[in-house]
């Protein structure tokens, strides 16, 4: 039989992935697939289990139960093969802050077995790529937050990973630094790298990610494109403030039905706003909480 249509290969696949720390269930029964070539966003509030998931995927932590395959290899049993295709920029950057940018790159190139000639070439290329050529000989601790992130990204790319994990890459960056980093991530993705990034910024997930998984208390509660997630809820949101006390939210498929609803409200309704819905609305509706905490 002929199967018509494109089957998008799963590059990362988890099955009932669970991690407990004592009684804390950091990740619970996680089932998801990340496709080759996409920018996948893992969105969730503090403590949701994002870092834990990344640490399991990158072989640093062993799952309590369940499994993860990357490129068809099991992260626990075939860690050596997984290590070859992954690169990570951890939440804490994991750079040696008392060394220069170049020394950090050199170190990472060495432990990934690049030859002296390859090291020289890749380091020059990558410094250029992340726009840090002028800062090559500066100590990491003298760089701005944005520059440190870019240095960490360069370090993680030396061995040409097929998938790059970015754990909250834009936390602590100013608006400009964030945009610049987004551009870098897009460029990397265009050049063929699958991206798995975590964030608790709604705009980031919307602006950057092809698909978004929402994680809450260790559980995956939704997974789709930002548009599809909003469509399920309604693309148009109405915020109606009643007696200046509570704001009520309602969602509609289009502006026309939203307007009809607003017109049906009693005159006492107070301020009413009609706007496009966003992922924050999706998150709040699914969990009853705000992403940044109450």
């Amino acid at each position: 039989m002929l199967i018509v249509g494109v089957i998008l290969a799963a590059f990362i696949e988890t099955e009932k992935l669970t991690k407990c720390y004592g009684t804390v269930k950091a990740v619970q029964d996680l089932d998801m697939r990340v496709r080759k070539g996409e920018i996948f966003g893992f969105l969730g509030p503090n403590g949701a289990g994002k870092t834990t998931t990344i640490r399991i995927m990158t072989t640093l932590t062993k799952p309590t139960s369940g499994c993860v395959q990357i490129n068809g290899f099991d992260v626990v049993k075939e860690a050596d093969k997984v290590k070859k295709v992954i690169g990570v920029v951890q939440q804490h950057l994991s750079l040696d802050r008392d060394l220069t940018v170049k020394e950090n790159l050199e170190f990472r190139a060495r432990i990934h077995h690049l030859s002296a000639a390859e090291r020289k070439k890749r380091i020059t290329e990558l410094l250029e790529y992340v726009e840090l050529t002028e800062c090559a000989d500066r100590m990491i601790h003298t760089l701005s937050g944005g520059m440190q992130k870019r240095a960490a990204i360069a370090c993680s790319l030396l061995h040409q990973p097929q998938v790059l994990f970015l754990d909250e890459p834009t936390v602590g960056l100013d608006a400009q630094g964030r945009r610049r980093l987004w551009d870098l991530v897009r460029r990397l993705n265009m050049d063929g790298t699958t991206i798995f990034l975590t964030t608790h910024y709604i705009e980031e997930a919307e602006a950057l990610c092809h698909r978004v998984g929402i994680i809450h208390h260790g559980r995956l509660i939704a997974l789709d494109t930002p548009l599809a997630l909003r469509e399920k809820l309604g693309l148009v949101a109405v915020e109606a403030n009643v007696n200046n006390k509570e704001t009520h939210y309602k969602y509609f498929a289009d502006r026309a039905s939203a307007t009809r609803y607003v017109q049906s409200l009693p005159a006492t309704a107070g301020t009413v706003i009609i706007r496009d819905s966003n992922l924050e609305d999706v998150f709040v509706e699914l969990t009853g909480e705000k992403v940044g905490g109450a």
């Binding site: 640093l60 992954i86 432990i111």
Partner: peptide, 17 residues
Amino acid sequence: VDRFFYKSFDELLMSPV
């Protein structure tokens, strides 16, 4: 320092070394 502050020890653990 590598393990607790810089966490660069993780990079060694993720390398083929």
